[in-house]
């Protein structure tokens, strides 16, 4: 009889990277390597999740994360159902708990969820008996984004240990920054955050990161610059004078990169505001990994779906 090495994540859900062990992160990244090869095949699809139904619950607008998840699900042969806020009965005043109960009644096997309220997927995990994947909850966490970022960096550098990563932008409102900080710190990278003081949390030291309000100083020693999207829709309370001012003070441009001794890798979670956080020629430059991030996102999400889809039962 063939002997199989079986492995499982410590948690049944993927709610966030805070507290996730190095072993679990490595298991996801290693598994994603195998899934990336599938994307290159003539028929880029495997029958692994045949017969499983996954619902993508998007209470908040999303294009690429939803498409990436849906593609990952389809590449694994799962049946997918999409739910978006605009076209759902949430508009009619249905509560999250009722939505969840309805999903349960429909015998769904897994839930991918995005919600504007931090903790919403955690709430769902308590009311439902199926694995929940957090696809972004408010300004709290976006674990699959951070996992695909780490995958992309590991692919380029071989290891995350000792890597100098500078995250630039609106740290306060960024779930991407939070998940990336927790994940990267666990994997042994050094993280510096940089941005206008109005957009950096007061007690950011608690994350174990360096803070620098001067972009030119912050990127001196950087291996990687991770530019966050300036979310104009979240900037209503006058924390930022204007996008032009932001570009002038914190935008990543060729002029800023030229004096640096090291070659710096550029990353961004998308969608890019060209000419705000990144100059166009930097975003499209040869050191940009932005499109690799998008491709890797599908492989990483396949890996997470696969690892979380084992059922209760006997192990052979």
């Amino acid at each position: 009889m063939r002997r199989w090495r079986t492995l499982a994540l410590k948690s049944r859900h993927l709610l966030g990277l805070e507290g996730m062990s190095k072993e679990d992160i490595e298991l996801i990244l290693d598994t994603a390597t195998s899934f990336k090869e599938i994307l290159e095949r003539p028929i880029p699809k495997v029958p692994t999740l045949r017969g499983k139904t996954i619902v993508n619950l998007f209470f908040e607008a999303s294009t690429r994360t939803r498409i990436s998840f849906e593609l990952a699900e389809k590449r694994l042969s799962a049946d997918t159902v999409n739910f978006s806020k605009a076209t759902s009965s949430v508009q009619k005043g249905e509560t999250l708990k009722d939505t969840a109960r309805n999903i349960e009644a429909m015998k769904i096997d897994m839930v991918v969820m995005r919600h504007s309220a931090p903790g919403a997927p955690h709430f769902l995990a308590r009311c439902l008996d199926v694995p929940i994947l957090n696809a972004g909850d408010g300004a709290h966490e976006h674990p699959t984004q951070a996992l695909l970022d780490m995958y992309t960096l590991r692919e380029k550098y071989g290891t995350l240990e000792g890597l100098n990563v500078v995250i630039v932008g609106d740290i306060s409102h960024s779930r991407v920054a939070r998940s990336d900080i927790w994940g990267l710190k666990t994997m042994g990278a050094r993280v510096t955050v940089c941005g206008p003081s109005t957009l950096i949390p007061v007690e950011v030291d608690a994350f174990g990161v360096n803070v620098n309000y001067n972009i030119d100083e912050a990127i001196q020693d950087a291996d990687v610059i991770y530019a966050l999207r300036i979310q104009m829709e979240r900037q209503t309370s006058g924390l930022l004078p204007s996008s032009r001012e932001y570009h002038h003070r914190f935008g990543i441009t060729q002029e800023r990169l030229r004096p640096l001794k090291k070659r710096v890798t550029i990353m961004h979670p998308g969608p890019i505001n060209r000419g705000v956080e990144l100059a166009s020629d930097v975003a499209d430059g040869e050191h940009s990994l932005i499109l690799d991030q998008v491709l890797n996102g599908v492989a990483v999400r396949m890996a997470v779906l696969y690892l979380l889809s084992g059922e209760e039962g006997t192990v052979e």
Partner: peptide, 12 residues
């Protein structure tokens, strides 16, 4: 697939 709790390691 439907009988397992843990997943086998996927190799290359």
């Amino acid at each position: 697939f439907r009988k397992r709790l843990k997943q086998p390691l996927v190799k290359a």
